[in-house]
Structure formats: C-alpha cells, structure tokens
C-alpha cells in the first residue's frame, strides 16, 4: 500500500466518522432538549396545576383551561379538516388522474408550504374581521387549513399502495366505482389513513402562530365556540415572554404536558406502523 492510498483510506475513515458524529449530535440535541423539559417541567406539575385556570402572579393557578381549550381546538379542527383532507386524498388517488388532478396536487402542495402565520392572517381577514371578534371557531378553521394538505397527501399515498387487483376484482363483480372506493379501497387503506390523521393532529397541536390572532387566548374556561379560547401553545408563549419566574416555571410544566401529547402520538404511530414501513 503506497503513500497516496494510505491518505485516501485515512480521508475516507475521517469523513465517514464525521457523518456518524453529525448524527450523534442531532440525537444528542433531541435528548438534551427533551430531558431539560422533563427536568424543568416536572417540579410544577400537580393535580391543581392541571385543573385550575390561570391566576395573577404569586397565586399559583394552572393550565386547566388551556388544556381544555387545546382539546376543543383539536376536536374542532379535526371535525373540519379530516373529512376534507381525506376527500381530497380520495380525489387525487381515485378520481382526478390527469391534468386537473395535477393542478389540485400542486395546489395542495402549495398549501403545505404556506407558513402557518400567513394562514393565521388569512383566517383573521376572512373570519375574525367580519365577525368582529376572536373565536375558538376561527382558531379551529386555521388549524384545519394546516391539517387538510397533510391528511390529503398521506391519504393519497396510502390509497395508491392498495393493489390494483383489488379494485379490478370488485369492479369485475359489478360494483360501481363509488362502492369500490368506499367499500374496498378505503377500508384496505384505513390504518394508513388513520396514521396520517394522527400525525396531522400531532402537528397542529403544537401550532401557535395561527392561533395568536384567531383563537387569541383566554384566562377562563371555554363556554362557547364563539368567543376567544385558551390553548396550551399560546399560554406557553405568553408565559415564556413574561418577566415572572413563576410563570416561566409554569411555561415549562405546560410544555411538558404538550410534549407528552405530541411525542405520545408520534411514538404511538411509529409503534403501530412498525411492521408495515
């Protein structure tokens, strides 16, 4: 082995080692962030913190209204966004092949790339301004707009994985296309579609920017969809930028709750799809 060969081998070993180091650092960053959240957040967690509504500085208080608000917003956005997203996915995979389908696919991809803050501005312009007040409904619509393209594209991909012979078999038995789609193709792809839906829910449960001027936030428990509503993320933001140590501690505890939800969904999805992908 001559000199230049040795240099080439050393070079190769160093560079491949560096790629492993990059991966190690990324995983390290994840573990540092997660463990720091757990360490900071666990101290302020209590039953009272999880059920109480916010109080002035020095009097404790909790995030019960924010947890409930986030759940209401998630439910609202799922009710609006999931059916729409699944229908668009069905259209892309089963109906709209060809040029029109490509236009719709392009539009859906465009929606995916829109910064969530712009979605917030849009919903403010078309819902909050005409209604003249912030509302849980507007927040739910903003989150639904973020959900739809995610659900649509995963649904499309899952439907395309269903073997063609299944469709042909059902059609050959005399079933019309709509029955084939609803009765054979969608059930076959149902686990995948559910996975996409869960990931979309996890994604929007961490959204803050589109809620700032749609759902706005509130210090009370929600009573109506037609008024501002609290959410975990906006609460975390407001507490994080406040000057009070007590609220900072509460922000970390609220983050721990939020991360449990988000990571819980992600890990569950991973566990459920382990064998398929």
């Amino acid at each position: 082995m001559n000199h230049s060969d040795r240099i080439r081998r050393m070079n190769s070993a160093v560079m491949t080692g560096l790629t492993a180091l990059c991966t190690l650092l990324a995983v390290g960053a994840l573990l540092i962030i997660l463990s720091y959240i757990a360490w900071q957040g666990i101290g302020s967690l209590s039953f009272q913190f999880l059920t109480d509504s916010p109080r002035p500085v020095g009097e404790g208080g909790g995030i019960g209204n924010a947890i409930l608000g986030s759940l209401v917003l998630l439910l609202l956005s799922s009710v609006i966004g999931l059916p729409l997203g699944i229908c668009v996915g069905v259209y892309l995979s089963e109906v709209g092949r060809g040029r029109v389908g490509n236009v719709v696919r392009f539009i859906v991809d465009t929606l995916t790339g829109i910064p969530s803050i712009v979605t917030g501005v849009f919903v403010y312009a078309v819902l909050v301004l005409p209604m003249r007040h912030f509302s849980a409904f507007a927040g739910g619509v903003a989150l639904a707009l973020i959900m739809v393209p995610i659900v649509a594209r995963t649904t499309e991909e899952m439907l395309k994985l269903v073997p063609h012979s299944l469709r042909e078999g059902a059609l050959a038995l005399g079933a019309p296309q709509w029955r084939v789609t609803l009765g054979v193709v969608i059930p076959a792809a149902a686990p995948g579609i559910a996975t996409g839906a869960m990931l979309a829910i996890a994604r929007v449960s961490g959204e803050t920017a589109p809620l700032l001027f749609t759902a706005f936030g509130s210090r009370f428990f929600p009573t109506s969809l037609n008024e501002p509503i609290a959410s975990l993320t906006v609460q975390i933001y407001n507490y994080a930028i406040s000057p009070y140590d007590e609220w900072h501690a509460q922000a970390w505890a609220a983050t721990l709750v939020l991360m449990t939800l988000v990571l819980g969904i992600n890990i569950m999805v991973r566990f459920l799809t382990r064998k398929k992908f």
């Binding site: 962030i33 961490g206 922000a251």
Partner: peptide, 12 residues
C-alpha cells in the same frame, strides 16, 4: 422527532 417538537417549545 426533532421535527415533531413544536416551534414554541424551541422558542422556550
């Protein structure tokens, strides 16, 4: 999973 962490959490 790094991509799953919400933006506001990164901010905090």
């Amino acid at each position: 999973l790094l991509a799953a962490i919400p933006s506001v959490v990164y901010g905090l």
